[in-house]
Design a protein around this nucleic acid. Sequence first.
DNA 1: ATAAAAACGACAACTGTGTATAGTTTGATG
DNA 2: CATCAAACTATACACAGTTGTCGTTTTTAT
Lengths: 209, 209
Amino acid sequence: MAPIVSEEYKRKKKRELIQAARKVFIERGFVRTSMQDIMDEAGVSRGTLYSYFDNIDHVFIEVLKYEDQKNIDDFLPSGEGTLWAQLKNWIEEWQIYIEQINQTLVHANTEFFLTSDYVKSIDNSSYLFERYARTTEAIEQLIDEGTRTREFKPQQSSRSIAMFILSFLNGLMLDTYQLGHEQTKVKDQLSVLLYSLEKLLNPTSVNKE
Amino acid sequence: MAPIVSEEYKRKKKRELIQAARKVFIERGFVRTSMQDIMDEAGVSRGTLYSYFDNIDHVFIEVLKYEDQKNIDDFLPSGEGTLWAQLKNWIEEWQIYIEQINQTLVHANTEFFLTSDYVKSIDNSSYLFERYARTTEAIEQLIDEGTRTREFKPQQSSRSIAMFILSFLNGLMLDTYQLGHEQTKVKDQLSVLLYSLEKLLNPTSVNKE
DNA sequence: ATAAAAACGACAACTGTGTATAGTTTGATG
DNA sequence: CATCAAACTATACACAGTTGTCGTTTTTAT
């Protein structure tokens, strides 16, 4: 009589589907992935998949939400020590991330936001926008905080520096995805970034290490 | 009896097709463009288009070649004055280019190299590779030249700095395409780049301006 | 006039989508 | 433990879009 499964079950099932989809998207990117691919990976029939998601764009959106949930604040600088140390540490984490870029959603993500119709709809272009704003602001705030405590003496506006960092990291990710990290010398480039930041921020703690 | 058109005619016709294709690719990107779109734009039948190109990847490759031919050395720093002045000038040109990014092939180009099968074939992945190498080396050489003449005192390897610049520009291009240049503050970010380069290269001419 | 080159456009094949249907499995509930 | 609705499977289908081919028609230098 009553529904045989709980909400709990449905949520779990949905998460399974999302995880399967995520795997496919990482392997094949967004453009080359079909609903069939996801069905195969999840071991589920056409009807089932469509009962959970309207279409493949929705699947991807859900994968993104899932991913964001996992990575909450993961990609924002934080931790122990001086702000400069936190920044350095954060950049080192990026090195690890970028060097295994083909195990990430970067490829699918880039494709999705370049090609999907949904991106043009209001709520999703704002998704891109918010993501950008959120990361930018986090870096910006770190710089401002450092300015307040006299740890930094920024030579350019904190906002510009934050956007600069983000642009560089985005570019490095894509270049590395396409050419491989042996080619793009991720570590070297991040060293250059670090040196630039040192000059841009003028951290007082730089000689303490 | 004799062939009714000259080689000249065929070359001209092909160029027309390429220009039509280019227009479509700029408007619609690579993924969403079909051979039909190009036929419509060029005002040409299916058979004709296919007699000039095997498939859409070939069309795009030819568009790229055409574009490269036009821009030969356009995107490499050069000109009058000190090397530092040349570099500054070159970056200003980038500003103009990026602020009208939606009249460029950047969107289509990114899609193409992310999605096309041809990219995986030897000669075309090397195309990407060579493009990257060419630009990198040009910047690298400019830095090395400056080092030789004592105009620069680079604080990081010239190659790393060159790659760093390229990554940043690539990232800025994509971010700006997706968010608009009001959002990404192209000019501000390029100012940060310039400041960084000043510190990275230590140009002796910097106070002369 | 003619014959080769160039252009046309119909066509079959294929891929992927989203819906629909019939039949099967599942498990909470009375 | 029999029941019954929800969840699922498997498959069929209409449909839309795109591809590459191929026989036919048009063009044009000679």
